[in-house]
Design a protein around this nucleic acid. Sequence first.
DNA 1: AACGCGGTCAACCGCGTCACT
DNA 2: GAGTGACGCGGTTGACCGCGT
Length: 520
Amino acid sequence: MNTNNTEEAKHEGEEALGGVTGERGGGAAASEEVVLKKGPWTAAEDAVLVEYVTKHGEGNWNAVQRNTGLARCGKSCRLRWANHLRPNLKKGAFSSEEEKLILELHAQYGNKWARMASLLPGRTDNEIKNYWNTRVKRRQRQGLPLYSDEPDRSNVATPPPNNASHQFEFLHHHHYQHALPSPSPQPQYSPLSSPLQPKPAISDPMIPLSSPSSSVTSSHSFIFSRPAPLLSNPLNFKRFRTSTGFPLRVAPNTIVTSSSLPGQPMTPPPQSSIGFSRFGYTGQVNSGLSHNIYQAPLLEYDNRGGALNQFGNPPPKLLELSSNQFSPHHQPNNNIMQTESNKFNMQMNHTDDRMKNSCGGRDGGNNNGFLGDHFYEVQSLTPGHQAALKKRSYFYTDEGNDLDGHRGFDDLPLNSSNWPSNNAELKLKEEAQYMSKSMNDDISSMMDVMPSSLSVSDWPASNATEASNNNFQSSDVIIPDDNFGLDSKPIASLFPTSTTTTNHNDNSGCYSWDDLPGFC
DNA sequence: AACGCGGTCAACCGCGTCACT
DNA sequence: GAGTGACGCGGTTGACCGCGT
């Protein structure tokens, strides 16, 4: 194997490869037993990897070792590339804006670092994760709430740590003004609670976490009687792939602040115009304010269940985009993204590696628009790469430049006639139907946990409204896992098991926050 | 100077998912 | 349907650094 090392492995690689002692270069049999190096990468190793990726593109990471002799496993190569070597990585401390965005995104998505990274141009999930963990530790020590809009700096107003009511007011004011039926009693928060992860009193599957639109509507209002605990994953996302994999449209600067709401509630478009791209719905995208486009959790819920009933169509295969499933040729040119306050948006589309790495998640499991933008034209990819691009797509649409079938948000024609009608789509529909059923199952289990005042049958209306209140084209659909999408498992690390798993535990690892110490 | 501590960062590990056979 | 490989991703760990004592 290693005797086949290509020339590229020879030049700069010599030194790097020398990091492994003994095994390489042995007999034929021994070559199969290359001991992979661990630990910090050397510059020589980096050079080898960079060169390889430059030539062959991302993906097929195990081939790196095979073809270059680099004594690193594929995973290590991928990680090294994704976190350190790929172009346009931002280094250095997070800006206050980024910090704020991280806060907001974490409030919305929980520990979905990759997803968050997809919305932070040039940042990696690892960076964000490290940052967050540091923050968590620090604030835990300080007894401060995590979810304040304090960007982890001391010069920003902080809610009084020991006054739950004040905290709520602070956060309520600064983050989310849920114009909802007033919860009763007034929610109280522990220092570890998140106002952005409210516990709905209504088991509405379309509950938008931290949704500005929630302050707008009435037909599907929901009550957040209490926030979800901190450090939990507010949503336990399931991932799905789609050829239309584009990421959530998050308007970072407006994501949570009610002040960014338009002067008037969004007028829901006719139901017929509510779009679920590619699946038979026509898509009408309001070119309105950016804050209306980020409601991924909401929309995903919509897609999953309600929309099916509402429109008589099965929901699409629910797709969460793996964080970077962006069209290689994605052009950030739609109105949605180009809002007044979202300088981030453009950056996201242009520089976010994950988004640009079109296929398969964080490092672009197969290939990348990133390379298309910066190193290659995607069209120039080798056949092997193009094949790889197809590999992990649900359907490969041989449409134009979308080699991987992943199409950028903006690339999507809103006319359903442009969408493929093929077996893959049918497959997706079947899956969607299955998932719709699964959702009902999930809902059933949720009911055990969260009493609902809204029946499941009410969802469609909510869906329609919510969907229409959010400029939305979603092929990037996140589906909350069971337990209402509240994955409370991480909480267990913070609280004694005896106190976190008592009541309201539905045997699936779901904890009630009522049982948590520190909650009223 | 030595030590402890906390913060940061890079990397590894394990598991889940998906595609392919 | 099972097995396998590749990949994605979250959690964890350990090295390193700066600072205070």
